[in-house]
Structure formats: C-alpha cells, structure tokens
C-alpha cells in the first residue's frame, strides 16, 4: 500500500537497484545505443550526461519499455530492476511501467483533467485503491512533489492553469502516486526557467531517500547538484551509436575523470 515507503530491509539487498547489461537499441536499421552497461544503486540519484543525440533518452526509454512503442524500434541486452528482468516474456510492459515511473522533457499533464484528477489518474486506472483513499494519495503524492501547499485550495482547477514548473511537479506527483520504486527523468527541467528548475532539483534531492532516480540531463551543473553517481555517454562520429564512456561517483566524474573524453566534456571543452 501507499504508506509502505520506506520499505525496511531493502538497502541491504544487493539486487535492489537498476542494472543495465550489454544494452543495444535500434530505430529501424539505425543503431542508437551500443553495449551500454550501467548500475544505478538503489535510492540514489544517478545522472546520465552527454552531448545531445548520444542516446541518453533512448537508454531511459529502454528501461521502462517505452522504446519498443516506436515503430521499428528494437532492443537487445538486459535490463534488470530489483533483480527482475524487465524484458522477461511473462512480464507485462504495463506492470513494468507502473513499477518504473517516468517524467518527460516537457510537462505533459492531461489538459482536460483537473490537478487532482491528474495526480491520481494512474491510481485510478490501476484500480488498486478504494475511492475513499484517493484524496489521501493525492495529498501524499503532491506533498512529495512539493506542490501540495500551492494547489491544495484549487485541486479541481484544470491542470493547465498551473505554471510550467508547477505542471512538471504535478507530473512528478502523477508518477509518484502510482507507487513506483524507480523514477526515470528525461531532462525534466529543459523546458523550465531557473527558479522552477531549482525547485525541481530540490525536490529530486528530497525524494531520493524513497526512490531510485535516474535522470538524463544535458546540464552538467544540474548533474553535480542532484546526483550521487554520473554516467557519461557520447558518440564518436555523427551516425555512430552512443556508448557509455565512464561511470562513477559524481564527485569523481567531475573532479577526477579517468577518460580523456569525459574530461574534455565536463571541463566544457566539448558539447
């Protein structure tokens, strides 16, 4: 049930966390990600950085099986979360996506629905919760998304009446309400102004004690501000697939990168 966080005893579990093994992804014949390996530890924030077009977002969309929705898209390799093979044939993509929430580049609340309806829509369709508890869930999710105080008096106003930053936090609340363990964020601040960005970053730090977070960003400062671990991806030449170049603690990646390509990127000489 919803109050289950934090789940006791899970830190100790070695398999608890995201591991990506030898992942390759294609759009039609075009290979966009090659031989990706990554371990994002449980209840930490892991950032994926790299120049645009390097396949960061595709990796993210492979994790919750959104990649396969694109016509002609293909995935090879393994994605495990909490020891579960996300691509196991007996596992339904829908239940994977309920367990692994996603926040998109642009805020995308459902425009015809109210703030409240947006917050609980995932729970509503999952039919797990009696109607009487929906408000409670909305409040918890909106509070964790640090939006509750701003909207509690106008829960039934249309979601599109909120500012861009508020809409994005509503989308985070919408994802949280379904009670996932892993949150994927695909450049969640790229459409927001600095103040709204700051609030989202603050929120990511605050929820990291409950959720495993993987965030894609093109903003290196953001990666240093919010993440515990960082992976750097790049492509060698235009048209090549993206690869992971280096992975480590954020302090190490930005302070003492091992790979010269990483060094060049984080010091601002490239990208």
């Amino acid at each position: 049930m919803f109050a289950a966080h934090p789940l006791p005893g899970r830190e100790a579990d070695q398999v608890d966390g995201l591991s990506i093994d030898r992942l390759s992804a294609w759009f039609g014949r075009h290979k966009v990600v090659e031989d990706m390996r990554l371990r994002a530890p449980s209840r930490k924030v892991t950032a994926l950085i790299g120049p645009s077009g390097c396949g960061k977002s595709t990796v993210l969309r492979c994790v919750n099986r959104m990649h396969e929705l694109v016509p002609g898209a293909r995935v090879q390799g393994g994605v495990h979360f909490g020891g579960v093979d996300v691509y196991a044939p007996d596992l339904d993509a829908g239940s994977v996506r309920s367990e692994i929430g996603m926040v998109f580049q642009r805020p995308n609340p459902f425009p015809t629905k109210s703030i409240y309806e947006n917050a609980i829509i995932g729970v509503r369709i999952a039919r797990t919760t009696p109607r009487g508890r929906l408000m409670e869930i909305a409040e918890t999710a909106l509070s964790r998304a640090q939006l509750w105080d701003e909207v509690k008096d106008r829960l039934h106003k249309p979601a599109v009446s909120l500012s861009g930053g508020q809409q994005q936090r509503l989308c985070i609340a919408r994802a949280i309400a379904v009670d996932p363990s892993l949150l994927l964020m695909d450049e969640p601040c790229s459409a927001l102004d600095p103040i709204a960005t700051f609030k989202i970053e603050e929120l990511i730090r605050a929820i990291a004690d409950r959720y495993t977070v993987v965030i894609v960003t093109h903003n290196m400062h953001q990666a240093t501000r919010v993440s515990d671990y960082t992976g750097f991806m790049t492509i060698e030449n235009a048209g090549d697939p993206g690869r992971l170049v280096e992975f480590g603690a954020t302090t190490q990646i930005f302070g003492a990168p091992v790979n010269p390509a990483t060094e060049a990127y984080v010091s601002g000489r490239v990208g």
């Binding site: 789940l7 006791p8 005893g9 899970r10 020891g83 596992l91 239940s95 367990e99 363990s181």
Partner: peptide, 12 residues
C-alpha cells in the same frame, strides 16, 4: 510492506 521489487512487479 516488505515486498521486494521482484514480488511487487507481479503483485500489481
């Protein structure tokens, strides 16, 4: 409350 993700996946 103590379900591991492995179990949670299938217990939705």
């Amino acid at each position: 409350d103590v379900a591991l993700p492995a179990a949670r996946f299938r217990q939705r």
